[in-house]
């Protein structure tokens, strides 16, 4: 920052206007925002308010006229449902497990890719491809080509080690789904952390080299603290995206056997579209929202931090 820039306010809102923006100007400025805002409210908020309303009703679609107001009995049923508890636990394991493994693998890959070597751009392109593949196609790929007990590539590779014939999908359904998720999300974490590594000021690294720090202590003392924000962001964003995972569960295991690999989105889907129980699935939806809000709270704070950091820089 040079001296003169400091004198100016960071926000450009002072440019070319009165200090207090008059009403007409205020609307002129807000105007372009309104269509997007109204659209988003209609498409996302009104359905959610309806969900709250439905969650207080006993309503099954296959029994017309069954709709009645039951206060919180749906919530009581949800918490009394032992399957729901299993599914909730599955969701936590699936989400956090996949995210954490993806972050660790992503960090290793990012460190690898942060060096100069021949064909780095190509390797990066290869690595991000799993993330881009349509999730339904990716799940299909895992279910058949990779994990099929007799013809799958994984068992073929494991044959020399005596590992053939494992029925991955039925014996380890949750782990199978997670493997597919990790394969898809590791590239995202890698990209995020690579962006973090590349935003590291080189003069710091050079200073450390001049100061005689070893590669490992440079990593631990400088790189890791710098990456902290990116790692946190990766965990939080990954959680938000993965808690909603549906496609892989639907494609690979249908939540089975039983509910062994079902997560909340899939379970709610089952209740709503196979069981037609609108009231209960709405109540479960609300519970998921509350759980997500807790995670989102962290997320918003994190993003806000990055956001205000950027404001300072502007």
């Amino acid at each position: 920052m040079t001296a003169t820039l400091e004198e100016r306010p960071a926000a450009p809102e002072n440019a070319g206007g009165k200090p207090a923006i008059d009403k007409a100007e205020g609307w002129r400025r807000r105007g372009p925002l309104l269509p997007a805002l109204i659209f988003t409210i209609i498409v996302t908020q009104i359905p959610f308010i309806l969900t709250l309303y439905y969650s207080l009703q006993s309503w099954n679609l296959v029994r017309p006229g069954s709709q009645e107001f039951v206060w919180f009995s749906n919530y009581g049923d949800v918490f009394a449902d032992s399957q729901f508890r299993t599914v909730a636990l599955n969701t936590v394991i699936m989400t956090l497990g996949s995210v954490l493994i993806a972050v660790v693998l992503g960090l290793l890959l990012a460190l690898l890719l942060n060096r100069q070597f021949a064909g780095r751009g190509i390797v990066r392109t290869l690595l991000i491809t799993p993330f881009l593949i349509t999730p339904v196609a990716a799940a299909l790929l895992w279910k058949t080509v990779l994990l099929d007990p007799t013809l799958g590539l994984i068992n073929f590779v494991l044959t020399p080690f005596g590992g053939s014939g494992t029925e991955w999908i039925s014996q380890f359904p949750l782990a199978s789904v997670m493997a597919a998720l990790i394969w898809q999300w590791t590239p995202f974490m890698m990209l995020l952390l690579l962006a973090g590594l590349q935003s590291m000021p080189t003069d710091q690294l050079e200073a450390a080299r001049v100061d005689g720090a070893s590669a490992w202590s440079t990593f631990r003392e400088l790189t890791l603290p710098h990456l902290r924000r990116f790692i946190e962001l990766g965990v939080v964003l990954g959680t938000i995206y993965l808690v909603n995972i549906f496609d892989q569960v639907y494609m690979m295991t249908q939540g089975g056997p039983g509910v062994a690999s079902a997560n909340l989105p899939f379970y709610i889907y089952q209740r709503a579209f196979l069981g037609f129980d609108i009231g209960q699935s709405a109540a479960m939806g609300v519970v998921v929202v509350i759980l997500t809000l807790i995670a989102a709270n962290f997320a918003l704070r994190l993003i806000f931090r990055s956001f205000s950091g950027e404001q300072e820089a502007a």
Partner: peptide, 26 residues
Amino acid sequence: PVKKTQDVLFFFISTKMLPVVAVIVP
């Protein structure tokens, strides 16, 4: 930007954190 801009921005982002399953029924 106007005064409430940040609120609007965070409203937008918060909608991404609303699970789709919570709104699919209605």
